[in-house]
């Protein structure tokens, strides 16, 4: 079974778990929007540190965080290299006909800091939620019912289909399949995907039949114990205050 959540078994884990999942969604959205609006480097650095603090507090481990972030850094590195050369301004480094501007460097740093802060924040607040809990929370926030159903079903079957995929891959390995850059590989992978889709379709028919058999009439009910408490309201105000302070500093500094 594939690991979807970032949730770690740790002592810190349930500190955040005491709050309503909806609070985590709202807070994450609020803070992420705030960070996007920030433009000053010291403030962005503060936001990044706060996000890291939060990630550490909810028990995201360093190596895991680094692995997830690496996926994004590819684009960030391109940006960091290209921007100094493309934004006009005072030059600080000259490579042949190209000269890098200080303004471009600051701009690139700003973007990198902002993107990292937002991603870490979202991973800490939302990435640690159970997928099903997240689906229910989204449903309670009045997102379209069908979308929520689709989300919950997809979450449910990703694990199952991943097992299916592993089985097919194992069968290929048993026949000494090694992926290379050639026609044989592409054909084999194409057929692998085709087979995966055929099996999924059959499975979805069985699921629908089984659900109809149990009286499925087009919707199922989201049973959840999420209760919005006073402390959730307080926490939301705290997050709103933090966002306001950051934005105020951005304006006045």
């Amino acid at each position: 079974m594939m690991q979807l959540t970032l949730a770690q078994e740790s002592a810190h884990g349930d500190w955040l778990g005491r709050f309503d999942p909806r609070l985590r969604l709202l807070t994450a959205l609020l803070l992420a929007l705030t960070v996007v609006a920030l433009q000053r480097l010291p403030l962005l650095l503060t936001a990044l540190l706060l996000a890291l603090l939060l990630a550490w507090r909810v028990g995201l481990s360093g190596p895991l965080l680094r692995k997830r972030l690496l996926a994004m850094e590819g684009f960030m590195i391109v940006l960091l290299v290209m921007l100094p050369f493309s934004v006009p301004g005072e030059s600080w480094l000259t490579l042949g006909p190209f000269s890098a501007s200080l303004e471009g460097l600051w701009r690139a740093l700003e973007i990198v800091l902002r993107a990292n802060a937002v991603v870490i924040l979202l991973m800490a607040l939302i990435g640690t939620l159970e997928p099903v809990v997240l689906g229910h929370a989204l449903g309670q926030l009045r997102l379209p019912q069908k979308l929520i159903h689709l989300f919950l079903f997809t979450v449910r079957y990703i694990g199952v289909l991943f097992d299916e995929y592993q089985t097919l891959r194992l069968a290929m390995r048993a026949r000494a399949f090694v992926a290379g850059s050639n026609r044989h590989t592409w054909r084999s992978l194409g057929w692998l995907l085709g087979m995966l889709l055929v099996r999924s379709l059959e499975r979805s028919r069985r699921i629908l039949a089984a659900m109809k058999c149990r009286g499925f009439s087009g919707r199922f009910y989201l049973v959840n114990p999420n209760v919005w408490r006073h402390r959730d309201t307080l926490a939301l105000f705290a997050a709103g205050g933090l966002a306001a302070i950051l934005l105020l500093l951005e304006q006045t500094l």
Partner: peptide
């Protein structure tokens, strides 16, 4: 709603793919 299981299972398959 009838097609949700189908769409969901296929979208899970695409996710894996």
């Amino acid at each position: 709603f009838d097609r949700i299981p189908q769409a969901a299972v296929l979208s899970a398959a695409f996710f894996i793919a």
